[in-house]
Simulated assay, not measured.
Amino acid sequence: MPDMIPFIDLKAQRARLKSEMDRMIDKVLDEGRYILGPEVSELEEKLSEFNGVGRALSCANGTDAILIPLMAWGVGPGDAVFVPSFTFAASAEVVVLAGATPVFVDVDPDTYNISVESLAAAIDATISGGELTPKAVIAVDLFGQPADYPRISELAKAHDLKLISDCAQGFGSTLNGRSALHWADVLTVSFYPAKPLGGYGDGGAVLCKDDALYAAMKSVRVHGEGADRYEYARIGLNSRLDTLQAAVLLSKLTIFAEEIQLRQKVADAYEAGFAQYVKKPKVISGAQSTWAQYTIEVEDRDGFRAQLSAAGVPTAVYYPIPLHLHEPYAGFPISPGGLPVTEEIAHRVVSLPMHPYLDGDQIGRIVAAVRSAT
């Protein structure tokens, strides 16, 4: 059996950055400021610069990054937050943790991002129902490409809703040359190791343009601190980013823009190699994806995955069961007409190896395996 190609190759990236990363980590160890050390503030500044708009606030993980603005806005019981069902649990989990109600929305059949039409129907139905107050929309930049923010933002503004860009997989993506924060109230990031910009442990960040919101979120991040460390202005979290993680991320950020372009080259090679054999990803017009995942659709997913595995090509499925079909989420409302696209694609999607360090031989093996299995 051939050697298995890495699905994500963090070792190759580590080898490239080893000297600089070791220097940064040693500096933190020598200074001994392991919580909110100077590297954390430096990372926040660099993230803002890279994003091109807004201020960045680091936190302990990508889940807290979404929860923090909800808490800062006071979203809670009796409020509705609209979120796609075809996503990772964190996108809806935070709504429940805040005490609010997630309303599940369908996705676009081509981009897999939130469907504006389904969102509009869900908002109207929630208003007509009269039991919940619409408060926010969480648009997920699934697999690394931005959602249709111009249309989503227009709809959110029409109903006075806050708009969160769940950019856990898509930090660094752009739409018409702009970050999602150009349209959204906040943009949230995950530094989970498998993400395009990943640390060596958990971490996250939330970016915003409003100074008052930034101050409230900063308070929420550290136990609801007020003007003094032991004055509490609100209920908060313990969600600080470790200084060692900030050092790792500062090193990785120096090559992040280049890695996005390397991922794009892999995506281009895949499209040229097997686009006519499978349903390939469709990127919204004017967008640059970070290609967190390269996700296709096939008819016989189990058979397809078995054949690729035999050829030494790993695959993964994101996400086999939509959130609204999991027991903890089954009782929450869904958009009128159901979520037919979400339920259909959950049986067909499969993701292929995607990282900046796939070489020509590996890409050739992957292309050949896909073509042979379809």
Score class of each variant (00 low, 15 high):
Gly273Lys: 10
Gln169Thr: 14
Ala168Cys: 11
Ala247Met: 00
Ser219Ala: 12
Val248Ser: 00
Ile235His: 11
Ile255Cys: 14
Leu181Arg: 03
Val248Asp: 01
Thr254Lys: 03
Asp268Lys: 12
Asp228Asn: 11
Tyr232Val: 11
Ser179Gln: 10
Ala233Thr: 04
Lys280Gly: 09
Pro150Leu: 15
Arg229Cys: 04
Lys279Asn: 05
Arg221Leu: 00
Pro150Ala: 14
Trp183Ala: 08
Asp268Leu: 11
Val189Arg: 08
Pro150Phe: 07
Gly236Ala: 12
Asp160Cys: 04
Gly224Pro: 06
Gly236Leu: 09
Lys218His: 06
Thr254Val: 03
Arg221Trp: 01
Gln264Val: 13
Arg263Val: 10
Asp202Thr: 02
Cys167Trp: 08
Thr254Asn: 07
Lys265Met: 15
Cys167Phe: 07
Leu241Met: 05
Asp166Arg: 03
Gly273Arg: 14
Phe274Ile: 14
Thr254His: 02
Lys265Pro: 01
Phe274Thr: 13
Asp166Ser: 12
Gly172Trp: 10
Gly224Gln: 00
Ser239Lys: 08
Gly203Thr: 05
Val222Lys: 06
Ala216Cys: 02
Lys157Pro: 03
Tyr200Asn: 04
Pro193Ala: 00
Asp268Cys: 04
Asp202Phe: 03
Leu249Gln: 01
Ala212Tyr: 10
Met217Glu: 07
Arg151His: 09
Asp242Leu: 06
His159Asp: 09
Ala272Arg: 15
Thr174Gly: 11
Phe191Tyr: 12
Ile255Thr: 12
Lys162Tyr: 03
Lys252Pro: 01
Leu197Trp: 04
Glu231Met: 12
Lys252Ala: 02
Gly226Thr: 14
Tyr149Val: 03
Ala184Pro: 05
Leu175Ala: 00
Glu271Asn: 11
Glu225Lys: 10
Gln264His: 15
Asp160Pro: 09
Leu175Phe: 04
Ala156Val: 08
Leu207Phe: 06
Thr243Trp: 06
His223Tyr: 08
Ala156Tyr: 13
Leu161Thr: 03
Arg263Tyr: 14
Leu175Pro: 02
Glu225Trp: 02
Ile152Val: 15
